Computed example of a mutant assay.
Amino acid sequence: MRIWSVHPRYLDRQGLTACWRETLLAQAVLEGATRGYTNHPQLERFRELPDPLGAIGDYLAGVADEAGERGYRFDASKVHRRSAGPVTIEVATGQLSLEWRHLMAKLEARSPELALRWAVVGAPEPHPLFSVVEGPVAPWERARPQA
């Protein structure tokens, strides 16, 4: 499961679809509707919030918005709840950088034209739910940092 901190605009078709599916799974986990993935580290940053389900719904809405911009139709009725007010989650520059390298490696392998398009991006924008702060890779991250 990967709940990307980078803006969904950077994801290729496969990545955007996988992000939607995996975040729907995360929503089910947070609702207690599944027994799998209950201790997945990607969920820690949502569980720390006062309204984890609202925040995951806001995340899903951001992914659905990007899908809509591309002409895809993700079923927004699958988003069970949104937060009552604006929610932001801090993401450290180290975490964003690690995810960017991870994503670029995936894009180079399966969508090289998109990798070339995004290669000029210095620091990627985060998903609209996140605000960037200085700092290292998150303690919950299990991907290995690359040099």
Rank of each mutant, 00 (worst) to 15 (best):
A123T: 15
R142V: 10
W118A: 01
A138L: 04
P126N: 06
S131W: 00
P136I: 09
E113Q: 10
P136C: 04
R110N: 06
V120D: 02
E125G: 02
L129V: 02
W118Q: 01
P126A: 06
E125M: 11
P124C: 10
R117I: 11
V120E: 09
E113C: 03
W118M: 03
H127V: 02
V121W: 01
G135L: 03
V137L: 06
G135S: 05
V132P: 00
L107H: 02
F130A: 02
R110V: 13
F130K: 02
H127L: 00
P112H: 11
R117A: 11
P136S: 11
G122Y: 07
A109V: 12
A115L: 08
P139A: 15
E113M: 08
E113T: 10
A109M: 14
P128D: 03
R110P: 00
K106T: 14
V120N: 05
R117G: 05
V133L: 04
W118D: 04
V137R: 05
V133E: 10
R142W: 13
R110F: 09
V137N: 01
E134R: 13
F130Y: 15
P139W: 08
A109F: 12
A123K: 14
V137M: 01
A109R: 15
V137P: 02
H127G: 03
L107A: 04
L116R: 15
K106P: 00
E141M: 14
E125K: 13
S111A: 15
V132G: 06
P112Q: 11
S111H: 07
G122F: 08
R117E: 15
S131A: 07
L116F: 07
R110I: 08
E113H: 09
P139Q: 10
L116T: 14
V137K: 04
G122V: 07
V120M: 09
R117Y: 05
L107P: 04
A123P: 04
W140D: 12
A138S: 13
P136E: 10
F130S: 04
E125D: 12
E141I: 12
P136F: 03
P128I: 05
A119L: 05
P126M: 02
